[in-house]
């Protein structure tokens, strides 16, 4: 019966069902995508003149915590070239601005202002005041969010030339 009418009907059904299955899977995949309202969830603008030295402030951008740390003169003196490349300069002041989620599995590390370091309580990862890893398991330093410098202000979510350069040189993902 392979080449008979029943065989033809089987193949015809298979074709219809196959097209239908692929189309439904596509629709199902798209239905799980983040909604446009979520995707377009705005930009966060920070006034950089408001921060105090060595005092960690946690801002919020797209539901994620953003660490902002204004660096002290002693911190700057301790920095090597790799550390300096992570600095964001606004009006001559140096800032660390990072997504405050551990690059291991996304917990929020806590800041110890005396030790000038971050500790993630989930799996024991540590970062220094520049956001670089000092103790595993995190695979890389804290990520830097897309930013654009606008006078005294920093706009998160927009990609300015300084951010693009960091991305190209692999300083952040």
């Amino acid at each position: 019966m392979k080449n008979g009418r029943r065989g033809f009907m089987g193949k015809a059904f298979g074709a219809v069902a196959g097209v239908g299955a692929v189309a439904s899977l596509y629709a199902m995949k798209k239905s799980w995508d983040p909604l446009p309202s979520v995707r377009s969830a705005g930009f966060t603008t920070l006034d950089m003149s408001a921060y105090k030295e060595n005092e960690l402030v946690v801002e919020k951008w797209r539901g994620k915590p953003i660490f902002v740390l204004k660096k002290t003169a002693e911190m700057l003196a301790k920095q090597n070239d790799a550390d300096k490349a992570r600095d964001i300069l606004v009006n001559g002041e140096h800032y660390m601005v990072c997504i405050g989620l551990c690059t291991h599995l996304g917990c929020i590390p806590g800041y110890d202002s005396k030790g000038e370091s971050f500790l993630c309580a989930c799996h024991g990862g540590m970062y220094d005041f520049t956001g670089m890893v000092t103790k595993a398991p995190p695979p890389r330093g804290l990520d830097i969010p897309p930013f654009k410098i606008d006078g005294n202000k920093l706009v998160l979510g927009e990609e300015g030339p300084e951010y693009k350069k960091m991305k190209e040189t692999g300083i952040t993902l």
Binding site: K29, W32, D33, P34, L35, V38, A41, R62, G63, K64, L105, G106, C107, C122, P139, L173
Partner: peptide
């Protein structure tokens, strides 16, 4: 929820798109 869904970024592969797809949001 945050930690377990982050497992789907598959570590060094940084498949953040999969994580956001599973969550339907950035967080």
């Amino acid at each position: 929820g945050m930690v377990i869904t982050n497992l789907f970024s598959l570590g060094g592969l940084h498949a953040d798109g999969i994580v956001e797809w599973i969550r339907g949001d950035y967080v």
